[in-house]
């Protein structure tokens, strides 16, 4: 019986090691690689989250489910030399339109995705379909928004929000707060670009200098 339990422990630890996912920080290249997987729901349904930690409150609400903690990611960005904006507060999220809203600040970032068979790096911008009320399509402007206090207190798990937000570590300055409240813009994953539900992807985040 003891041998059986020991064998079981060895097998389970080997299996968990085989699936171990880690945040990779490459200081020389100025990039962070976040392991994630595709959530097929948001290839057909709108969301404001591009990437969320699977154990966080919004873990199942994003196009990509991150397999590592958003807090570790925050510290990795700081280690890389990024400066957080920390200019969006919870009350800014109540803006009724983008005209009333505020844009996130912080170091500029570029985000790419790779997966088995992706044929090189795919910009996050191409993996997200942006639909606007007046056809006003804007290029993604991802920033290191910070929001460490909110992230640590409420643990929403948000890595990358698709509009300016008080919760995400990275959010999109192209769309101020209030734009989504006013239904000026909506986002969903691009099923023609992204691989199917459950596929493992690497999210490569680079600091734009």
């Amino acid at each position: 019986m003891k041998k059986f339990i020991l064998a079981l422990l060895v097998i389970t630890s080997c299996v968990s090691l085989a699936f171990a996912e880690e945040l990779i920080i490459n200081k020389e290249a100025g990039e962070i690689i976040v392991p994630a997987e595709v959530n097929g729901k948001y290839l057909v349904s709108p969301t404001k989250h591009a990437l969320s930690y699977f154990k966080g409150g919004n873990g199942e609400k994003a196009i990509l489910r991150a397999l590592v903690s958003e807090l570790d990611y925050y510290h990795a960005l700081v280690e890389l030399g990024a400066v957080p904006g920390d200019n969006i507060k919870a009350e800014d999220m109540k803006a009724k339109s983008s005209a009333e809203g505020k844009r996130t600040e912080g170091s500029k970032l570029s985000v790419f995705l790779t997966w088995e068979g992706s044929n090189g790096e795919v910009p996050l911008d191409d993996a997200v379909i942006t639909t606007t009320a007046n056809g006003d399509v804007r290029k993604m402007d991802l920033r290191f928004s910070g929001n460490l206090e909110f992230a640590s207190k409420y643990r929403p798990g948000c890595f990358i929000c698709l509009d300016s937000c008080a919760a995400g570590i990275n959010t999109n300055a192209a769309w101020p707060t209030g734009a989504m409240n006013n239904k000026e813009v909506s986002f969903k994953g691009n099923a023609k670009v992204l691989p199917p539900d459950g596929t493992k992807v690497n999210v490569i985040v680079r600091l734009v200098k």
Binding site: S45, T47, H49, E60, K61, M180
Partner: peptide, 12 residues
């Protein structure tokens, strides 16, 4: 109810 994005983002 899921047709409302606000609702979808806030509940299990």
């Amino acid at each position: 109810n899921l047709q409302n994005e606000w609702f979808d983002m806030r509940v299990n």
